[in-house]
C-alpha cells in the first residue's frame, strides 16, 4: 500500500494505492489520525485501491466515527471494493462519491 497525504485549506486528501488489509490498515489508521486534528474535511482517494478487507473497513469506519459522515469523503471506489461496502450495508453511512 502507498499513501500520499496533502492538505489544502484544511481539506486533507489521502491518496491510497494497493490493498487495505490486516497488514496495511494500521498504516492508514496512523495517517488518518495524524491528519485528522488539522483537517476540517478529509477525502480518501481510493481510485488505486484494488482490495479491502474487514480490517480496512474498520479503519475507514473508525475515521467516519471520528470525523463525522459529512467531513469524510470516499472517492473512486473500484467495483469490488464498493461491493464490500454494499455487502456490509455501510454505503448508507458513508459519503461515497
Amino acid at each position: 500500500m502507498k499513501l500520499n497525504v496533502t492538505n489544502e485549506d484544511k481539506i486533507c486528501t489521502i491518496v491510497i494505492e494497493g490493498s487495505i488489509d490486516a497488514l496495511t490498515s494500521p498504516e492508514l489508521e496512523q495517517a488518518i489520525s495524524g491528519a485528522a486534528p488539522v483537517c476540517e474535511k478529509m477525502i480518501l482517494d481510493m481510485t488505486g485501491v484494488d482490495y479491502i478487507s474487514s480490517a480496512g473497513l474498520r479503519t475507514v469506519v473508525a475515521a467516519n466515527q471520528k470525523l463525522g459522515k459529512d467531513n469524510l469523503v470516499l472517492k473512486g471506489l473500484a467495483p469490488n471494493v464498493l461491493e464490500i461496502f454494499r455487502l456490509t450495508g455501510f454505503t448508507k453511512f458513508f459519503n461515497i462519491e
Binding site: 478487507s53 474487514s54 473497513l57 474498520r58 469506519v61 464490500i84 455487502l87 456490509t88
Partner: peptide
Amino acid sequence: SIGGLGRFL
C-alpha cells in the same frame, strides 16, 4: 461494535 464484521464478510 465493529467485531464480527470479518466473519460476516
